[in-house]
Structure formats: structure tokens, C-alpha cells
Computed example of a mutant assay.
Amino acid sequence: MQTIQLEHLFKQQHHQTILKDLTLTIQAQSKIGIQMSHVEATTLFKLLLQMLPQTSGVITGITPDHIQAILHNDGLYPQLTIMSYLKSFCRLSDFATNLDDLLQFFALKDVARVKIKHLSADQQQRLALLRAFILHPDLLLIESPLTNLTNAGIELYLSALAYTRTHSITVLLTSYSLEELVLTSKTIYRYHSNTGLELTDLATENEADNSDPTPSTPRPIFKVATKVDDKTVFFSPNEIDFIESVNGVSQLNVSGEQFISPQTMNELEQQLTTLGFFRCHRSYLVNLQQIAELISYSRNSYTLILKSHSKIPLSRSKLVNLKALINF
């Protein structure tokens, strides 16, 4: 795939600015995720497919015939069976691989003769992915693929997505959920309507990297300081649900609100470890008392669900330490 470059992309529609100052490089085999709304994602996809002209900015390297998109509300043909539906796309693309073998990799073999209207949401998402696989684009754009899926459905979709990527298909995903992007992408951006794309600290960690020094014995503290305008606001550790590093800035999450701390994640980890906090991911410190569930989507993907219903990633390398701390 040729490298695609978006430079200072700007799109206005119906007197509203949808995208502003969006700059992005999409290289072959990159695993990019972007946190953005449905309207923003749809507009971006249409620009890449050249279904819409940009208001300003430059897009280079685009070959629309080699790009496919799967939107969250994509329609299928409900009266067709999976097999008859897929065969029509095989004819369009001169696809030669045996469909029976392929259905196995997308966990759809047992429902191959079932009408699409009778499929679950989990199965329909995998069917949309398989349809795109058959068309074999250089670049596949997917919006919110894991939204509303069951835990088993997420695990099966992630497996099918990994299989898709092994066949030289570059996948760019968008979602409003950061958790979804952590599970599906390696390089994660947030889109801000005023400033464009912002690279996050949520890239997949190198699990083999043991270079981080062991933190020294933490000293007790009773309050964590944050800055709000010209004020300093203090929180007791038990009030904090979790702490997230956002582009190198520590952000306390307290009852659904975010507060900026002047301290680094390493400093906060040293101070809060003895007060019930755990570094579950390079970018997250979690209050152990707030953990309600642990979900495993695959051998390499773990998510913590908190009492507040927030979802945060757990690194595979941290799982053993967490088990020792909370005895499970």
C-alpha cells in the first residue's frame, strides 16, 4: 500500500465545521485508532474514499478503489443467507479462496446457511469484516466494531481482525471508546475539534520491556493535589477512581470528573502504592477498591471494569502482580 498523507485537512458541511486541521500519515500495516464521533468518522471515511471533497488541506497517496469502509450502522441484506451473500462479493472481486475454510477463521462456519436477519449482532459484525476481507482492500476503515458486542463476540472479532491484518490489509479504526481502541490499535489518537489529532500515551506496551526501575518504598500521603484554574484542589486517595496519563499529563478521575495533577505518573505511583493503588498499565493507576470485574478478550487483552463502569486496560505483564494483590 502506498503511504497516505493527510495534511491540515479541513471540512465544512451545512455551515458547520466537521473536521479541522487534521494531519495524519497512514503507512502500510500501521494499526491506527482515532477517538472521534460518528459524524467525524463518517466524514473522514468519505474524504478518504473521495466521496466528499475537502474544504481545504491536502490528501496524497489515495487510491479509492483500494479502500473499503465498514460503518457502525452498515446495512446487510437480511433475506440472504451468509453463503449466498458472500458469493456475490466473491464474484465481484474474483476471490478464489474456498469460502468454507474462510468462514472458520471468522467464526461463521456453523451459520453459513442461516439468513442474515437471524444472526446476532456479534455475527453480523464478523460478517461485515469478512465481506471486506473478500474485497481485499489495501486500506480498511472500520467504525466502532466492538460497540454492543458480547464479551465472547469481542474475543472472536479480535481474532478475525488479527487474521485480516495478516493478509496485507491495513486497518484504521475509529471509535468514541478509548477502551475499544486500546484493544484494536497500537497507535491511538484523540481528535479535538479545535486542535486536530493528538497522539495519546495508549500505544500497546512492549511486554518484554523490563527496563523500568522498581519503584522505591512509597511514603504515605493523605491528599493528592490538582490544579483547577488558579486554585489547588485536594483529594483523598479513596476518592480517586483511577489516574490516567494523557500525553504525559496525569489526570485524576473522580466520580466521572477529570482533574489535572502537576505530578508525573511515576511520582503518583510511588506515593499511592501503599494506599491501595496499582499501576495496571503504563498509562493507568487504578484504585484497587474500585475494581468490580476483570474481562479477558484473548490471551493478550485484559480490561478492568470499575464500580463507576469505567473501563481501563490491564497489561498482560501486570496480571500476575494483580492476582497476588487481590488474591484471585
Rank of each mutant, 00 (worst) to 15 (best):
M1S: 07
M1P: 15
Q2C: 03
L9C: 14
L9K: 12
Q13V: 08
Q13L: 11
Q13Y: 10
I18T: 10
I18S: 08
Q27H: 10
Q29L: 03
M36R: 04
E40L: 06
E40D: 11
T43C: 10
L44F: 03
L49P: 12
L52R: 12
S56C: 13
T60M: 06
T60I: 14
G61P: 09
I62G: 14
Q68G: 07
Q68A: 07
L71S: 09
H72G: 14
H72W: 06
Q79L: 01
T81Y: 02
S84A: 04
Y85K: 10
L92Q: 02
L92G: 00
D94T: 12
D94S: 13
D100H: 04
L103W: 14
L103I: 08
F105A: 01
A112E: 11
A121D: 13
D122S: 10
D122K: 08
Q124C: 06
R126V: 13
L127A: 02
A128G: 00
L129D: 05
R131V: 06
A132P: 10
F133D: 01
F133C: 00
P137H: 07
D138F: 00
D138N: 03
L139Y: 15
E143K: 10
P145S: 07
T150L: 05
T150K: 08
L156Y: 02
T164E: 03
T164P: 03
S168Y: 14
T170M: 02
Y176C: 15
T184F: 04
S185D: 07
K186E: 05
H192M: 08
N194D: 10
E198S: 09
D201A: 13
E207D: 10
A208H: 04
N210K: 15
D212N: 04
P215Y: 03
F222A: 08
K223A: 09
A225Q: 07
D229R: 12
F235T: 01
S236A: 15
S236L: 11
N238A: 14
N238Q: 12
E239K: 08
I240L: 11
I240M: 03
I243Q: 06
E244L: 00
E244N: 06
S245F: 05
N247Y: 01
V249L: 13
Q258G: 08
Q258L: 00
F259K: 12
I260N: 05
P262K: 15
T264E: 11
T264P: 08
L268C: 13
L268H: 02
E269W: 00
Q270A: 15
Q271M: 03
L272I: 00
G276L: 02
F278H: 06
H281S: 02
H281D: 05
Q290T: 11
I291E: 04
R299F: 01
N300W: 00
K311G: 09
P313E: 07
L314E: 00
R316E: 00
S317I: 09
L319M: 05
K323V: 02
K323A: 04
K323R: 13
A324Q: 15
F328C: 03
F328P: 00
